[in-house]
């Protein structure tokens, strides 16, 4: 890979991490279950489906590093080292893995299905299955509850995340059509 291509990817990784921060500033939409849904976890799915597995994951790591350095860029203005000690820290550590899974599945399935469907499956597995696996494991570690009890406290967020899976699929399709030259995950 040429230096220019590598540099281009570094820029894309950084700007997508900044995009994830911007998505955290979109006013949360109050959802039927009473739990507001933030656009930030949608950004995690999009990092994978649009940048691809490797660059999507690197972009999420970069974002977490800047949060750990003290930037309050998580949805709701949270940030700093403290968020990595809280009961929801598992979800943060999941960001790179969720993006990686979403990117990998989108790429490998886009031959069989349309890109929108492939991205939908990627976002579902990465953004919900992987995300909650880590999230609940972290919650369990901090609070010492069982898997089932942890899931019971978390389930209110799942309907909102299901909506984001659909959005991630639609947005990925739209972006690939708008920028066929830039869209990299194919």
């Amino acid at each position: 890979m040429s230096e220019i291509t590598k540099d281009k990817q570094v820029v894309q990784i950084a700007i997508f991490a900044a995009l994830l921060a911007a998505l955290g500033f979109i006013p949360p939409i109050p959802f039927a279950t009473g739990v507001p849904i933030s656009a930030q976890s949608l950004g995690v799915m999009l990092a994978g489906t649009i940048l691809g597995a490797r660059n999507g994951a690197l972009s999420m790591i970069l974002f977490l590093v800047v949060v750990a350095l003290g930037a309050n860029l998580l949805a709701g203005g949270r940030g700093g080292l403290g968020v990595f000690a809280g009961p929801t820290a598992g979800f943060l550590f999941a960001f790179p893995f969720a993006a990686f899974t979403a990117g990998l599945l989108t790429r490998s399935l886009s031959g069989k299905f349309s890109l929108t469907i492939a991205a939908g499956i990627g976002a579902l597995v990465g953004g919900i299955v992987v995300m909650y696996l880590f999230g609940i494991a972290g919650f369990k570690l901090v609070t010492g509850r069982t898997w089932l009890e942890s899931l019971m406290i978390m389930w209110v967020y799942i309907p909102g995340d299901a909506v984001k899976v659909v959005l991630a699929a639609v947005v990925t399709g739209a972006v690939a059509r708008a920028l066929p030259g830039t869209y990299a995950n194919k």
């Binding site: 894309q12 700007i15 997508f16 656009a39 649009i50």
Partner: peptide, 28 residues
């Protein structure tokens, strides 16, 4: 207003291409 997300991503990726060109023009 989630409808703004696709254009936001497109703008971000376009800008990323421009920034990458600017970085390359300055020698990487």
């Amino acid at each position: 207003y989630w409808q703004i997300i696709a254009p936001l991503v497109v703008q971000a990726l376009r800008m990323s291409d421009q920034v990458a060109e600017a970085v390359a023009a300055r020698g990487g």
